[in-house]
Design a protein around this nucleic acid. Structure first.
Length: 256
DNA sequence: ATGGTTGCGAAGCAA
């Protein structure tokens, strides 16, 4: 089983790139973020034509998450299961085969100590609570998406250049660690210990070609799934060419 | 990298 995640930065603009990549990479499940499309305008038929059921949680302008699956898509849940303000279409979950899959778009946080940063920390905390209420660490659980946190210094191009700023500050990293302590493993790191393997590069200033980026898109797996993980890849080729997203897709393969 | 780009939507703002 291949589980992929991709911050597409507007599914409307990116649809042909997404279709092309699905046909090439053949994921069983694709989690998308920053779809920026309303549920009503979601390209459900384009994905159906490729053999995927899909569902969207989007307001049409900002954020927006979605799931596409060719192994079933059931018990769809949009947002948190509480009264808590969900802060704009950043979470959805569904059961695909025997896996509870979550597509997440963690708030960016803008600058450290801003109200947006505080909201980001709260959101990560709420996500852990949500998992604790809706599944068990012994279940097959995948939490995939744009976390807007680079887990450690290997995940940024120059730790000294951005020490303490957003995406790398201690409190964000602690919040991500706390989430993982519920019972999740960073699947990419099971296969690659190396530094400077990124998933996002700023559009500006030719950063992609200068290898100035961060690894902020993650597939987190519960232990039963992590133990079956056989392979992972960030597909940098999808960051190249015409009208790319500023994020590359990544996927993890899980054996029987 | 304190923005050299992109997307949204029609001017700045967010990332």
């Amino acid at each position: 089983m291949r589980i992929a995640t991709w911050n597409v930065n507007s599914l409307t603009v990116r649809l042909s790139r997404v279709e092309e990549w699905i046909e090439y990479a053949q994921p069983d499940i694709l989690c998308m973020q920053e779809t920026k499309v309303s549920d009503a305008a979601f390209p459900i038929m384009a994905l159906a034509a490729l053999g995927y059921e899909s569902a969207s949680h989007g307001d049409g302008r900002w954020n927006g998450v979605a799931l596409a699956s060719r192994i079933g898509l059931e018990d769809i849940q949009r947002g948190f299961d509480t009264e808590a303000d969900e802060q704009g279409c950043r979470l959805m979950a569904a059961t695909c085969g025997d896996v509870r899959v979550h597509s997440v778009y963690v708030p960016n946080g803008r600058s450290v100590d801003s109200e947006h940063y505080v909201a980001k920390l709260e959101w990560l905390k709420e996500l852990r609570s949500h998992l604790a209420r809706t599944c068990e660490p012994s279940d097959a659980v995948a939490v995939c998406g744009d976390f807007n946190v680079a887990p450690d210094d290997r995940d940024v191009w120059d730790p000294a250049a951005i020490e303490g700023s957003t995406h790398v500050s201690n409190r964000e990293r602690d919040a991500l660690e706390d989430l993982k302590k519920w019972g999740l493993v960073d699947a990419f790191r099971l296969h690659y210990p190396q530094p400077e393997l990124f998933t996002w590069w700023d559009y500006r200033a030719g950063n992609f070609h200068k290898h100035i980026g961060m690894r902020i898109d993650l597939v987190l797996l519960s232990r039963p799934l992590a133990d079956r993980s056989t392979y992972a890849l960030v597909d940098r080729n999808a960051r190249k060419g015409k009208q790319p997203s500023d994020h590359a897709p990544m996927f993890v393969d899980i054996g029987p």
